[in-house]
Computed example of a mutant assay.
Amino acid sequence: MELSRVSAKEYKNSFDVVFHVFNTVEFSELNSDKCESLHYLLFIDKKVRLGIVLGERENMLLSPFSAPFGGFTFVKSNTRLEYLEKAVKLLEDYASKTGFLIKISLPPSIYAPSFIAKEIGIFERSRFGVQHIDLNYQFETRDFFSYEECIDRSARKNLHNSFKQGFGFEKLNSESITDVERVYDVIRVNRESKGYPLRMSLQNVLNTIKVIKADFFILTHNAKDVAAAQVFHVAADVVQVIYWGDVPGYTELRAMNYLAYKVFEYYAASKIRWIDIGPSSENGIPNYGLCEFKENIGCSVSLKYTFSL
């Protein structure tokens, strides 16, 4: 097997399908200003077997460099272990040759269970070390049809309370700047009130939804926007909640319980299998409040590995 650094065009043409959107050339090029250069690497054994996109920044090569996760891209999901093993060894050699450190965050297992399990196993036996393991939460939409049985008594009480509040729920037009800004403003207020960073500007969102299919949802109460969700379609049967939240003053009305319920209901009626709610830890350290909320609304937990060399 050989490693070849190629152009964005050659890399794109090497894969008919990329199993999650954060590994696509389109997404990488859109965010290329967030690193010094992009390394498009192909792993070739008679033909292309695997690829990876690395962003160069501060003497490091990062996958992802501007996304929740990255990792290898495969031509076939049942890629043989020996190809992955050789590819990781070539990455090690590439790091030694270029003098860069490498950090790779893998997707949660719901995106490609067998392939990601192989990645974890091989990275763990390599010179790469586990930097941290994050807790990731997701909801499987088939569980929505017995939703109240999936959540505990206190969560059911909160949900039933939310049903009495007269909330309005609407999916907005993702092609309307006004509608996107309406959702963004709710998220911005939510983050500011909690002291959390909002890493995407409105312009970042508008640029990103040109290359990623996105849905925007709004929750109203007495004609006021009180909660919202921004969701990206990131894989064939997975959507990811990028941002959601409510404005101050509506916690007791259980606005977030109602919003989660309606978002789950919407995707349960579609062909989407998984709703990725994202991690509730940072650098492996859990946020207990977020973990509890996501478990209370019926989410299960998976592991998201970050390896470094």
Rank of each mutant, 00 (worst) to 15 (best):
E2V: 15
L3Q: 10
S4C: 10
R5Y: 06
S14Y: 08
H20F: 05
H20L: 04
T24I: 01
V25I: 13
E26V: 04
L30N: 03
L30Q: 03
N31S: 07
C35N: 03
E36W: 05
L42V: 08
L42P: 04
K47A: 12
L50E: 06
G51S: 11
E56K: 07
E56T: 02
E58R: 11
E58S: 13
S63A: 11
P64F: 11
P64H: 09
F65P: 05
F69E: 04
G71W: 02
F72C: 09
F72N: 09
N78T: 14
T79E: 09
T79Y: 04
T79H: 02
Y83A: 09
E85V: 04
E85W: 07
E85Q: 11
K86G: 12
V88L: 07
K89M: 09
L90T: 06
L90I: 07
F100M: 05
L101K: 13
I102Q: 03
K103D: 13
K103T: 14
S105R: 12
I110E: 10
A112R: 01
I116T: 03
I116S: 02
G121Q: 06
R125I: 08
R127A: 12
F128L: 07
V130H: 00
I133A: 09
D134A: 08
L135W: 09
E140N: 14
T141G: 07
D143Y: 15
E149N: 12
A155E: 10
R156A: 07
K157P: 08
N158Q: 14
N158V: 06
N161D: 11
F163G: 10
K164E: 07
Q165D: 05
G168K: 05
N173F: 00
I177C: 09
I177D: 11
T178M: 11
V180L: 01
E181C: 09
V183G: 00
D185T: 13
R191D: 04
E192A: 14
Y196V: 09
M200Q: 12
L206M: 06
I209N: 01
K210I: 08
I212Q: 12
K213Q: 12
A214W: 02
F217G: 04
H221G: 06
A223R: 12
V226N: 01
V231E: 05
V231H: 04
V234P: 09
V239I: 14
V241K: 05
V241E: 07
V241I: 15
I242H: 13
Y243G: 03
P248L: 02
R254N: 15
A255E: 01
A255G: 08
L259H: 00
A260Y: 06
V263I: 08
V263H: 00
A268P: 03
I275G: 03
I277K: 05
I277R: 04
E282P: 07
P286A: 05
E292R: 14
E292M: 12
N296F: 11
G298I: 08
S300G: 13
V301T: 15
V301Q: 13
S302L: 06
K304G: 07
